[in-house]
Design a protein around this nucleic acid. Structure first.
Lengths: 254, 254
DNA sequence: ACCTCTTTTTGGTAATGCCAATTTCCATGT
DNA sequence: ACATGGAAATTGGCATTACCAAAAAGAGGT
């Protein structure tokens, strides 16, 4: 079996992350208590059918997060249990993240409208162009989209606001389910709609806080819509109804 | 040299940590800027005279901490610099934190007004009582105040919203300058004003989102005021003027 | 100039081998 | 019996080699 990569069902990225997540789940499930020793690297490699280097990488990931302590010649020991903070937004659905963005980034846009420098606004204008360009490329990674939103957050001149919003984006990228859903939404809906971004930009240029908030909320409400569209599971249908309620509130605002 | 371990002068532990530290220093020194690509794994292995697996481990350590982003077939790119985010909320002033709370918690209150269960609202009512009691005790630690705000965040039923707001509180408690300033504000102002909390509660009971947002913003605008009042430093005077501007916006809202 | 196909570069993992730190356990001496 | 010392087994630490797949760079044709 040299090179399971061939038969191993084409996994492209970060096998160690999958393993780390699995171990994390086992920890959270109480399979290993604080002070317990994890199985040996060689054993884990067998159990999970991966190579030892991969196991090492996964354990290092846990070690860096302070979850386990590795003692040479002895083993890896559980230091503490994954707290709510450690599973960064593990249970945060794409809906929750986007709803939070709707609320927070709306306010950020409003504040940015009164705080942003001309240079910052022009930078944002450039990013709108970049989004348009990115949209023409079917493989675009929404890199410009992210930059656009973060630039606005930065233009608030409030580090706490920026950090909070940046964190929401980080969670979105981390959360597996979230990533999956966004991918589906992208395939279905495609374009992150340049018009909506342009509207936000126009409000910023006009230094109109209320308009900026409204435009940003409209944009993110559309994103929320696309997420709902990308979902067929019945379980989510309930959330859909609830979100529908909420959305009606959003548009009623402005 | 195969197996530097033999001649390598008894290194027992974590070669990858040494490497990660070295890279961290280079990052901090500005050798690689945000967005830059790190040298290839094979190249770093040569430069530092270690094996590629070790380089991978070090890069994974950086990746887990969010310092770099690894793209398959391309390389490892700098995401952010060490030090800004690693010591959470380093340069976040009490003003910034409170302003962010004003924006975010206002929205949270509005959402909570439509989402909270009756039980949750009664729990919040109990916390208002607790705040009143805490006020009578000069040694009160604003424990109830914190619980009040977090309960509202939780009542949004949105984990992302809750986590973001909880983080702002955590930062407030961590940041030394922030704590100091809040202390001064407390001594000067005394009561965390029960009336304002009561107003928020009333709006929640009425399920009036707009009123809840308004009441919460009024409350936090008052906190912001007390912070400004507690400040005499000239350096802050400028920020004060800027904040004054912002505040006028806040009250103009609602 | 522009698009396309090939080559090179770069990360992803596997597999193997050996060293060093610990631990286990048994033999030995008291 | 008990303690002690040391070999043997266990376990992590790193190095090497090899090959695949994704991405970037370059060559070639249009």
């Amino acid at each position: 079996m040299s090179g399971d990569s061939s038969g191993g069902a084409g996994r492209q990225d970060r096998l160690y992350q999958d393993l780390a997540r699995s171990l994390l789940h086992e920890l959270a499930a109480g399979k290993y208590l604080v002070g317990d020793r994890l199985p040996a690297e060689r054993e884990l490699a067998l159990q999970f059918n991966v190579s030892r280097p991969t196991v090492r990488e996964a354990i290092i990931a846990l070690e860096v997060q302070g979850l386990v302590e590795v003692r040479v010649g002895s083993g890896a020991y559980v230091r503490r249990h994954p707290g709510k903070d450690d599973l960064p937004g593990f249970n945060l659905s794409a809906f929750e993240l986007t709803e939070a963005r709707l609320l927070f980034e709306g306010e950020a846009a409003a504040l940015a409208a009164t705080q942003a420098s001309d240079e910052e606004i022009e930078e944002i204008a450039g990013l709108v162009q970049a989004i348009a360009a990115e949209n023409r490329d079917p493989k675009g990674k929404e890199q410009a989209d992210r930059a656009f939103h973060l630039a606005i957050a930065r233009a608030t001149r409030n580090g706490a606001v920026y950090e909070a919003i940046e964190r929401l984006w980080a969670l979105r990228e981390t959360s597996p389910e979230s990533a999956l859903l966004h991918e589906k939404a992208r395939l279905a809906n495609i374009k992150p709609v340049v018009d909506e971004h342009t509207a936000v930009l126009a409000a910023l240029r006009a230094r109109d806080a209320a308009a900026a908030r409204s435009a940003m909320r409209t944009h993110l409400a559309a994103v929320l819509d696309s997420l709902l569209f990308a979902t067929e599971e019945r379980a989510i249908a309930e959330a859909r109804a609830a979100a529908q309620q909420k959305r009606s509130r959003y548009s009623a605002e402005s």
